[in-house]
Simulated scan of single mutants.
Amino acid sequence: MKHPLPARPEHICILRLSALGDVCNLVPTVRALQRQWPEARITWIIGKGEHSLLAGLSGVEFIVYDKATGVAGMRALWRELADTRFDVLLHMQQALRASVLSLGLKVDVRVGYDRARAKDAQHWFTQRHLAPHPRAHVLESFLDFARLLGVEDLSLAWDLPVPEAAVEEAADITGETPYVMINPCSSVRLRNFRNWSAEGYAAVIEHAWRQYGLKTVLTGGGSTQERQLGERIQALCPDDVVIDAIGQTSLKGLLALIRSARLVIAPDTGPVHMANALGTPVVGLYATSNVDRTGPYLWREFAVNRYADAVRTFLHKEPTELSWGQRVRHPDAMSLIRAEDVIDRLEAVLAQPEIPPDTESPDEA
């Protein structure tokens, strides 16, 4: 017998700890739940860094779990919520750590992914499962939770909070200079291979400057890899064209930089989804991952998409032969992207009016 879903939930728990791009893609689901049940409480259990990005999101109570605290942190969270009972848990984090954390929550019904999308045996920790949705974008997979609960209006909205202090932080970096923002690196992890070349970025930066008078702001974390790539890019560019903000912004400050940028260029990493959420044009650089699954949702047609070429070149298969979401983990995959490809997409974006694209319901797109 299926566990019944609440017809009108009073308290909804969302469990999604990471990552930055994913939590941005989840916000439209939160907004859809709020429109359907404006009186419902929404508690979101979220990671530490992700909370610093979304802090202040209207109508949401955040509970922060720092994975560095391990089991001790879980126990502290369980004690904090010991007297709280949720009508429904939307278990959106496909990781064993998150599933273990969920066991300490008092919940009437636990909702997770269908078997085709579930990972790390998540379906063993949930009682109701999403309807199958093959080849879904990550954003659409999150919206499937709202669909299962019976939410009718799935139009996209974000309204991310960008405080005045973050606006001032960004202004201290850029002044009144019009700029392109480039976040050249994706997150630093084993066998990631999502980063493009310094030479390619430098060619795009010089084109934006000579043709449009747009300087470039480089952003990213403070890792050695990111700093070194930023230095190589600057060394290849004309003087005073690049503003180096790598490792120098808070996440809210990064949001403010993105919001004021003429466009954002980045590989498959958090800032492409932040830009998408803020209505800032974005050119995503995709070869190791499938833009139809993880691309900036409203700007996928402007991405440089070499995923199919990478699959054929390095995996010797057709994309249709791969499981949905399989990555091409080869260090040369991003070399399939040429500078002229990115310049062409930059030109296409700059030819658009300076307004965000229409936000359609995924059912209508």
Rank of each mutant, 00 (worst) to 15 (best):
R117F: 00
A118K: 03
K119Y: 00
K119E: 13
K119Q: 12
Q122L: 01
H123F: 00
H123S: 12
W124F: 15
W124H: 14
F125Q: 08
T126I: 06
Q127A: 10
R128T: 06
R128I: 03
R128M: 07
H129Y: 02
L130K: 04
L130P: 04
A131Y: 00
R135I: 00
R135S: 02
A136P: 09
A136L: 07
H137R: 10
H137I: 04
H137V: 06
V138L: 09
V138A: 11
V138E: 14
L139F: 02
L139M: 15
L139D: 05
F142D: 15
F142T: 09
F142Y: 15
D144F: 02
D144N: 13
D144Y: 04
F145H: 10
L148R: 05
L149K: 06
G150P: 03
G150E: 07
V151K: 10
E152H: 12
D153Q: 11
D153L: 10
L154R: 12
L154I: 13
S155P: 05
S155E: 13
A157K: 14
A157E: 15
W158V: 10
W158L: 07
W158G: 04
W158H: 13
D159T: 11
D159H: 14
D159P: 08
V162E: 02
P163D: 02
P163N: 08
E164D: 14
A165E: 14
V167E: 14
V167F: 00
V167K: 13
E168W: 01
E169S: 05
E169R: 09
E169A: 10
A170I: 07
A170Y: 10
A171Q: 14
D172Q: 15
D172F: 04
D172T: 13
D172H: 13
D172A: 15
D172K: 15
I173H: 09
I173L: 15
T174Y: 06
G175N: 09
T177Y: 02
P178K: 03
Y179A: 09
V180Q: 01
V180H: 01
I182G: 02
I182Y: 00
I182A: 13
N183S: 14
P184Q: 07
P184C: 03
C185W: 01
C185I: 03
S186E: 00
S187Y: 03
S187K: 04
S187G: 07
S187Q: 10
R189H: 11
L190H: 10
N192A: 13
N192F: 06
F193P: 01
F193K: 06
R194H: 05
N195P: 02
N195A: 09
W196Q: 09
A198W: 03
A198E: 11
E199V: 08
E199L: 06
G200R: 15
Y201C: 13
Y201T: 04
A202R: 09
A203T: 13
A203M: 06
V204D: 08
V204L: 12
I205S: 11
I205N: 09
H207D: 11
H207Y: 14
H207I: 01
A208K: 06
